[in-house]
Structure formats: C-alpha cells, structure tokens
C-alpha cells in the first residue's frame, strides 16, 4: 500500500520533471520544429536515398536485385530523348511567355492611366483557381477536332481549314503551352506588380528631368528594378516546366499519338507505375533532378544572380 503510494509520487514527480524539461526555453523550440525534422527524415531524406538506391536495382514484387548502372544505360533510348525534347520545348516556350507577357501587363496595370485596375487584376487571376484537369477539359472542348468546335469555327471565319489540334506535334505542344500560360499569367502578374511597388518614384522623376521617353524609362528604370522578380519567376517556371505531367495527361491520358505529349514525368509514370518498373522509373527521376539542377544553375548564372551586387 505504502509502496504503491511512493511509486505514484515518484511518477508524478518525474512527470512534472518531464514537463518542466519540455517547457524550458532550450527544449521548447526543438519540440516546435520536430514535425519538420520527422517529415524531413521520413518524407524527403529517406525517399531521396531510396530513389537513388532503387535506380541501381531491378525492383520486382518481393525481390530486388542490384543491376549496376543498367537502368541508366537503358535511359539512353529514343523515347526518353523524345520526352526530354518535348519537356525542354515546353520549358522554353513557357518561360518566354510567362515572363514577357506578365511584365508588360503588370506595367500597364501599375500605370495611373488604366481604369478598373482591380477588376482586371482579379479577372486575370481567376484561371489560376482552376485545376489543370478542369482547365484541360475546357481546352479539349474548345480545341476539338471537328470543324464545329469553337476554335476551328473561328479559324473557318477567316477561311482556314479546321485543325486536328491533338494529333500534331506542333499543335499538341501549342495546346500544352497555352493551357499552362492561361493558368499562370495572372499569378506572375502579381509577382511583377509586387516588384513594381519597389521602384522608387524618384528614379522616374529623375528620368523625366533627363527627358527620357516612356520606352527608355521602361528599359533603364523598370527592368533593372524588376530583375530579382524576373529571376524568381523564370526559376519557378523552369522547375514547374520540367515537372510537367498534368497538362499532357489531360489531353492524351498518357498515350499520345507518336508520344507527342510525352514528358519526363509522364515517362516516369509510364515506366515506374504503369509498367511497374520502379528501378527504371527511379533512374529517370534521378536524371530529371540533375537536369533541373544544372538548368537552374545555368539560368541563374545567365541572369547574373550570383554576382555580389544583388
């Protein structure tokens, strides 16, 4: 009886001790960040190591064997290069479109001479609220093959032949780039608008005194001030471009004629999931990561993001 009481006492004492320990200012921050540490270890570090290990294995249900660099050798095939080519083309066009158009539109949206600014800004943002799937459903319908579909009818009005949008490599790429551009322009406009708030009025006033034209002001005052935002937007567009999958899936469900819509991630999905060849899929993933890393670095170097002055 007495014994159990002392034990209970001890327990409460140690519980208090634990609470006191957990509540100290030295320990509390570690408790706060523990969810990130756990998720980093379980959801990032482990899968990343596992992806690299798997890329050297043949993964079959209940049986994995190391096969050296065989998966990597297999990557060097025409289908992969086609996927890489498609993805690179997509990245190229989305970066150009999603940097240039939003810059121009945001400069106008920022000018005093535009009426209904907030309305326009909000309207251009609405496409960003749709999922790629829903947006793709709309685009498939508007760019239907028949001559009675929306866009083909408009082409007919100017005397052009109906286009088989989803069956040509060029038009297929056009659809994917258009879909992405439509969804992202509004978001990128907001980035540039935020950047424009940091351009000091004084610089424009000084340029006015020097007799600069509107174009010169844009080129020599606005653009340099927007440089960090341009770098940022270009970087996320490149990364998102290399990760592209859904824009292609929604048009062709991962089996496009002649692989015109096949992307690198689509190839991972096809080989790793559909063909259940996880080792090969993982190897493609590792190559994709290296490509993204190298391209991002080259792009940052191109923009001079590593120079001290920034």
């Amino acid at each position: 009886m007495e014994r159990s009481e002392t034990m209970a006492n001890k327990k409460t004492f140690s519980l208090k001790g634990i609470l006191h320990f957990l509540n100290s200012r030295k320990v509390a921050p570690y408790v706060f960040v523990s969810p990130f540490i756990v998720s980093f270890l379980v959801l990032y570090l482990y899968p990343m190591i596992q992806a690299i290990v798997m890329s050297f294995q043949q993964v079959l249900p209940g049986q994995t064997t190391f096969i050296g660099t065989h998966n990597y050798q297999r990557i060097l095939n025409p289908t992969f290069f086609q996927a890489l080519g498609n993805t690179a083309t997509y990245v190229f066009f989305t970066v150009i479109i999603l940097v240039m158009i939003p810059i121009v539109l945001s400069v106008f949206l920022n000018s005093k001479s535009l009426y209904f600014k907030n309305f326009f800004r909000a309207s251009l943002f609405i496409p960003a609220l749709t999922s790629v799937i829903v947006a793709g459903i709309i685009f498939r319908m508007m760019f239907g093959e028949s001559e009675n579909s929306f866009v083909n009818e408009l082409l007919g009005l100017v005397g052009m032949e109906p286009v088989q949008w989803r069956y040509g490599a060029g038009t297929g790429m056009f659809l994917m780039v258009l879909l992405a551009s439509w969804r992202w322009i509004g978001v990128n406009i907001l980035y540039f608008l935020a950047g424009l708030q940091n351009v000091s009025e004084e610089l424009y006033e000084a340029a006015d005194i020097d007799g600069a034209s509107a174009w010169q002001k844009f080129l020599f005052v606005t653009m340099p001030a927007l440089k960090p935002v341009i770098i940022f937007v270009a970087t996320i567009t490149i990364i998102n471009g290399f990760r592209m999958f859904e824009e292609s899936f929604v048009f062709w469900e991962n089996s496009s004629p002649g692989n015109i819509g096949l992307t690198i991630v689509g190839y991972i999905y096809r080989e790793g999931i559909q063909q259940n060849d996880m080792g090969f899929g993982a190897a493609i993933g590792v190559v994709l990561m290296l490509i993204i890393f190298v391209v991002s670095m080259l792009q940052l170097k191109f923009f001079g993001a590593f120079k001290k002055e920034d």
Binding site: V33, P47, M48, F242, G272, M278
Partner: peptide, 30 residues
Amino acid sequence: YNFKGSRVIFLLVLFVLMVPFEILMLPLYQ
C-alpha cells in the same frame, strides 16, 4: 527562438522547397 541548429533547419526547409516531388514519388508510393 535562437537555438542550436536553427540555421541548419532553415536551410533544410529551403532545400526541400527546391526538391521536385516527382523524384520522391516512386519511393513514397512504395
């Protein structure tokens, strides 16, 4: 908080921000 390792943890946050999910996808699925 100023605590030991906070800088490292913050850098890790920035690092995982950059890692494309598609690379982790197959192991996570497994």
